[in-house]
């Protein structure tokens, strides 16, 4: 099947960048160390054993998870593949090909994400316990729910990138928006610090966006911070965003395609 083949190609393409992957792991891990010691100092200074439902060990695990999966989920690295082809006009050759445009890029990018979960994420989760004690899911069900949540997070992350890229149909300088969207995602997704550390009003703002569904939700499920009704609510909200954001992307893309004017040829 075409999209499965695209997924595989996206995965294989990443294998060409072996030294980049190694350098990436080292950099992600070093940042993990810095962030861990910052949280140790924060808990020390706060005089509390738990902040927003996070123990110190949870907070350290939070840094491990974000550093491990941040590049896969597109928070550490930005993606401007579609925007580039819109700007250059090359998109026209893709549009004449017989595939569904959104699914084409989604399959390719999922290939990259899965590669990075395995070859950038897992090494970090394996190295971390040699330095710090981590929190682990306590049951098979929790592992499964985390995997489910992580998978939905990947799709929402892709939608976020794709949607921002589509702005290039309307604005010549969409790349600037894109850069801001990327940096804003680090903050509002709960990547830099957990959303439970936010004051209520700020968390409320974040929760109106799809961004927490990319980072905060899978992590709270992994740590067991989200439990019972809150857990199902978080998963339901993620599912909502998967569906709604896919539709939004498709509609935005269709509207953008109508505006497309290609010079020459």
């Amino acid at each position: 099947m075409l999209y499965l083949a695209l997924f595989r190609k996206g995965f294989q393409r990443m294998m060409a960048y072996r030294s980049a992957t190694l350098a990436g792991i080292a950099t992600n891990f070093f940042f993990g160390l810095l962030r861990t010691y910052l949280f140790i100092a924060v808990f020390d200074a706060s005089g509390q054993v738990s902040i927003g439902g996070f123990s110190l060990r949870d907070a350290i695990t939070f840094t491990a998870l974000t550093q491990a999966f941040g590049s896969s989920l597109g928070i550490i690295n930005w993606w401007w593949e579609v925007g580039k082809t819109i700007e250059s006009g090359e998109i026209i050759t893709d549009l004449t090909k017989p595939f569904h445009y959104f699914s084409f890029w989604l399959s390719r990018d999922l290939g990259r994400m899965v590669f990075q979960v395995i070859f950038r994420g897992l090494p970090i989760m394996i190295v971390y316990p040699f330095f710090f004690e981590l929190t682990w899911p306590t049951s098979m069900a929790q592992w499964l729910l985390f995997s489910l949540s992580l998978s939905m997070a990947m799709i929402i992350s892709f939608c976020w990138h794709f949607w921002m890229n589509c702005l290039s149909f309307w604005f010549v300088n969409a790349k600037g928006f894109g850069r801001f969207a990327w940096l804003a995602a680090a903050f509002f997704s709960g990547f830099l610090i957990p959303l439970s550390f936010f004051p209520d009003w700020l968390k409320a703002i974040a929760m109106w966006t799809p961004l927490p569904a990319i980072i905060n939700t899978p992590i709270e499920i992994y740590l067991g911070v989200a439990q019972g009704a809150a857990l199902w609510e978080a998963l339901g909200l993620q599912l909502f965003w998967v569906i709604a954001f896919t539709i939004i992307c498709e509609l935005t893309f269709r509207a953008g395609r109508k505006r497309l004017v290609i010079q020459g040829g």
Binding site: K175, F177, R179, W182, A184, P199, L202
Partner: peptide
């Protein structure tokens, strides 16, 4: 655009430091 987006985006990174100081 590039200037403003980087400036504002990075300010958000500093905002996370400010948020940590709520707790200590």
């Amino acid at each position: 655009m590039e200037f403003a987006s980087t400036f504002m985006g990075m300010i958000l990174e500093f905002a996370s430091v400010v948020v940590l100081f709520i707790h200590m």
